Structure formats: structure tokens, C-alpha cells
Amino acid sequence: MEYPLRAEVTHLYPDEVEQARRILQAVNAELEQPLPASEEIALALHLVNAGMASGDLTFTYRMTGVIHQMVAVIEAEYALELEHDTVSVGRFITHLRYLFVRVAQHKQLTSDASPIGAAIRGTYPEATAVAERLAGIIELRLGDELTADEVSYLALHVARIAEGR
């Protein structure tokens, strides 16, 4: 079976894919009929899901799709083709994973705009506009509106990506 999110999972969760590859090799060493290599994607998603402490892969699939969509928006907005293995993209994806957990657990950063958030928005107005678009995607796909500080920290990561840091 081929997994439709293979490319996204491979780029978004390289550590989990590598762990899944090793697990699959160990399992296949014990089986007469080895599992196909494509099963590493399913295993990787289970590892991602386990890291999110959720028993249902639906959230992981949705999160992966949202991340892919958000990266595509940033690429289009800044006319970039992002290298998914860079530090800034990795930080962005890690930030999003924790953001999605906070959203799912209804534990977002404070709803009042903090001075740090205001400083980020003032320093990076273009990235803030992009972050607000990304927040709209999250609201549509996950059903929760982001707080001002969540949008600000999202803007900081967008600015890092746009600046290539």
C-alpha cells in the first residue's frame, strides 16, 4: 500500500521515519514474509502520534495536512522553495506540533496580547500578516481561533523562514 502523505511525512518527521525504518528492519528480520518498505510511513505516523499522546491517528493526519498547507502558503507568499531539512523550517514544524497540541488541549498562550507579542508584530509586520493567514487556516481546519500571542510567535517563525535563518 502506498501512503498518500509519504512525501509530507518524510519531510515533516524525518526522525520518526528513520526510527520507523529501523523498527521495520528489526521486525522484518523475524518474519518469513517481510512487511513492505512502505509500512515505515504508517509506523512513523504512529510514532508521531505517540509523541502527541493521542490514541487516534486522525489528529496526526490532520496536523500533517495543515502543516503541509501552511508551508505551501509561506512558499507562495515569499516566492520561496523551502528546504524542509533547514533549521528554520524544522523549528517552525516543531513549533506547529506543540501549537496543535495546545489548541487540542485548549491551553493556548494567554489571550491578552503581551508586550513581547506586540514587539514581534511591530518588528515583523509582513510576517504577521502571513501568520494571520496561517491562523485562519488553523481556525478552519482545527476549529479554534488562535490567541494574539500564538499569532505573534507564529509570525516570528515565519520571519525566520523568510529571512533564511
Rank of each mutant, 00 (worst) to 15 (best):
A135Q: 02
A104H: 12
A104M: 06
Y78G: 10
E30I: 07
N28Q: 08
F100I: 09
H46L: 06
R62Y: 04
V158L: 07
A53W: 02
F92I: 05
L47E: 02
Q108V: 15
L35W: 07
H84R: 11
Y13D: 04
L24S: 01
G90C: 11
A104S: 12
L140Q: 13
I93R: 07
L24D: 10
L109S: 09
L45Q: 01
L24Y: 09
L156Y: 15
E30V: 03
D112H: 06
F100N: 00
M70W: 02
S114G: 03
E18D: 08
K107N: 11
A53L: 12
R102F: 04
M52W: 10
I74G: 00
Q19R: 11
E126K: 08
V151K: 13
E40M: 10
Y3A: 09
I41K: 01
V158Y: 01
T10E: 11
G143C: 12
I116V: 15
E39A: 14
T58D: 02
Y124M: 08
A29R: 13
R141Q: 14
L156T: 02
L5H: 08
V101P: 06
V103D: 04
E8R: 09
L31K: 13
A155G: 03
E81P: 03
D112Y: 08
T123L: 14
M1Y: 11
Y61H: 06
G164Q: 10
E150A: 05
D144G: 04
L45E: 03
I67A: 08
V130P: 00
A76C: 05
A26G: 12
V101R: 09
F100Q: 01
A135N: 05
T10V: 13
A29K: 14
E30D: 10
E18T: 09
T147V: 07
E18Y: 10
R22M: 05
I23R: 07
P36H: 08
D15R: 15
L140G: 08
R133V: 02
V73P: 01
P115Q: 13
H106G: 06
F92D: 05
V151D: 03
V66R: 00
V27K: 04
A113M: 15
I116K: 15
R165F: 15
T110H: 06
R160H: 04
T10A: 14
G55W: 11
D112G: 07
T86D: 00
I116G: 04
S152D: 06
A53P: 01
Q105W: 08
I116Q: 14
D112M: 06
A37I: 09
I67M: 04
L99T: 05
S111F: 09
A42E: 11
A37C: 03
E139C: 09
H106C: 07
A44S: 06
R62C: 00
T64S: 14
I93M: 05
R97V: 13
V27Q: 12
V73S: 05
D144E: 10
Q25N: 05
T147F: 12
L156Q: 02
A129N: 08
R121H: 07
I161D: 00
S152F: 05
A53F: 14
V17H: 00
L142R: 04
A42F: 10
T86P: 08
L5V: 12
M70C: 05
A119C: 01
E18I: 10
L154R: 02
R97A: 08
S38F: 09
T58Y: 11
H11Q: 13
L154P: 05
L134R: 04
H11F: 13
E163L: 14
D112K: 09
L57S: 06
A7S: 07
